[in-house]
Amino acid sequence: MSLNPSTPASAEPTPPRAAPLPWWAVALAFLLLVGFLTILGLALRNPAVEVGDHVPPFILESYNGEQVNTADFQGKVMLINFWASWCDPCAQEAAELEAAWKALQPGGKVVFLGVAYLDTDREALNYLKQYGITYPNGPDNQTRISNIFRIRGVPETYLVDAQGRLAAVKIGPFASVDEIFQMIQPHLP
């Protein structure tokens, strides 16, 4: 059953000439293609705040019911710690963070904020109680806060200087209170 060599594909020299491609179809297809490429390109930008960048203000609804607005902390150094009750390494640094806070709070130049990442209230409150944490802590509602920093996991700590710029980043737990001081000291106003 051999193939008939004169299939219409190549048989006759095509009598009817095809209508030219309308320009609007070309333009439309081109726009769609470029639009898609733009979206892809934009998505590839890494919108995370980098060290030296201005950190946009955000509101933390603390577990005590306060609305903590970071815009109110102009002129102060702000330490933002992301944690979760299900995260074992977070527990390693909890006591150190609280000790550092106790030491720095009287100076009035530093603010500590704890953000519970993807945590359930009951477990988060237990955790705060267990480690006796006194600085403001709240849930990361709709992961808005962690989105600003594009955190990779917990614990992570971000230091914002008095001018509102990201000054330092610590991925993973702090080993000692001194390490926390060393991170903050150079940026004190």
């Binding site: 979760a84 009750s85 299900w86 995260c87 993807l118 945590d119 359930t120 009951r122 477990e123 992961t143």
Partner: peptide, 22 residues
């Protein structure tokens, strides 16, 4: 979000266990 693309009912992490308890 901790286990990407694994449904919550079978995700083995501690966080997911907490969510299920909730």
């Amino acid at each position: 979000p901790i286990c990407d693309n694994i449904p919550l009912d079978v995700c083995p992490t501690a966080a997911c266990a907490e969510w299920r308890e909730q």
